[in-house]
Write a protein that binds this DNA or RNA. Sequence first.
DNA 1: CTGGGGAGGGGGCCC
DNA 2: CGGGCCCCCTCCCCA
Length: 567
Amino acid sequence: MELPNHAKQLLLQLNQQRAKGFLCDVIIVVENALFRAHKNILAASSMYFKSLVLHDNLINLDTDMVNPTVFRQILDFIYTGKLLTTDQPGEQNFNALLTAASYLQLHDLAALCRKKLKRNGKSFAGKAGGPSVGRPPRSHRLSTASVIQTRYSGSTEGMKGSQSKELPKGKISDDEIFISSSNQENSHSLSRGASKNGGSSANGSSGDQELGLDLSKKSLSLPSAASLDDTQHSESQHGSPQSASAPAANSASSFDESATGAPQSAADSSEPMEMDMNEESHSLSESGQRKSLRHSARKKEWIKKDNAFDRQEGGKGGEEGEGLPNGLLVGPSSKSAERNLTNAYGPEHAFQCKEEVENGQENSDDSEQSESESGGHTSANYVYRQEGFEPVAYGDNLYVCIPCGKGFPSSEQLNAHVETHTEEDLYIKEEGTYCDKEEAEDLSNPNQSYAAESRPFKCSVCEKSYKDPATLRQHEKTHWLTRPFPCNICGKMFTQRGTMTRHMRSHLGLKPFACEECGMRFTRQYRLTEHMRVHSGEKPYECQLCGGKFTQQRNLISHLRMHTSPT
DNA sequence: CTGGGGAGGGGGCCC
DNA sequence: CGGGCCCCCTCCCCA
């Protein structure tokens, strides 16, 4: 006995779960976009994914091979067996898809793309490598205004703000997932965007589950979980297959055509086109296994990147070794994100961001990302709502203004509020995070009466005092009604950015600190230090009442309670 | 079943 | 901004 639609129903459910982020256990980073998915599904789709998700909860893909738009198509394809086209011209899109599919070892999809290209009389644009194959020209990608859209599914409210159909054709680029030139939203806001390619509709799910979080700004330290385990899985993972099985010989000509040709003919492909994989046997199989050992050179490159992650996360080598702080949502600069995510994560450059939307430089890949991360990036400093990860701290006020921490029930209200902030406000709040300027002035007043004391900086609220004003400012935030640092994933608010980024690690499963003895990993160095006493047998904490010794102070404390409690 | 200890993990907060 | 410490919660094991 066999249920005829069992597999289909199962996949449908999985896709719906993906749309809601339910049980998603892996985040895939593509340029400046995040996608959530299920490891099992990815692993069943390709050997490459299988090796990636084996040890990692956070995966970053080579943006030369795949861009967010294409990956979104691919993810939809994986979950539905259907390929939905974008507004991108057909050949260009299929070339990009073929590049990405080859790279990701999605052989069925690659074959499908090849077939389609062949049918259209276009040969694959060549070796799956040229950035322009996998992604539109930079001039296109950066030509749009700096409005970041995050995409949500399901909820109809807010969909009005950024319908992709309003976008001028011919401007379609991967960044338009996030950057919309026609978005009516305030340019400072992250708005909920619409499904770009209608991918959600095909399978009844709300699709678009990707986080759509922008990773630009500075700090996507993306300490890939790869860093967690460099010794264990360096062999198997990240063996970027890039099978590039398409003939490399016929590369140049068609590439130029597809990459630079004005995509004004987008109309012919703008409506969702479904390609049911029935015609090509979409099997969530491991058919790619036979090719998984190829292209070892590329594998090395990925391993190297993982090591770079390691350096950042584990050894404070990176500018932000703490997971995904603001960078998750800030900053439209896809280039910087691209650099950050793909270019070996040099600790000095990794998270710097350069505003390039305006100038649209062509060769910025070669330019130093020297601009400070603080420069010119107040624009996207606002939080959004994301389905599946409902912020917990605000109830219905899911749109949170980062500088002041206020929550609003709609993006429109947030935008209205945002405009009440002056640039100066933003500066002050970002720099010192004062509630208001007066407070800042008061605190910087050198004539304070307690200036001569050892802890001259006293809190006006609780009388605590501190040695330096920065610590006082830090402390004073604890008195605020709203906390300035929200978690981009769950919405929980924190008074300190460091606490928030530390918290982020728990979402991402990042445990950079490994015990050399037993391999156990920890989110904090301090935990590892504590843990090492398990191996050393050291019990430095002694109960003065009974002489009992403990490895951890907290356990001594709880032990002391036992002594002091009436029972 | 219960209490106590060991240990993992998260948040707050100060340096 | 990271490190470190404190506090709390929780789970597990064991007597």
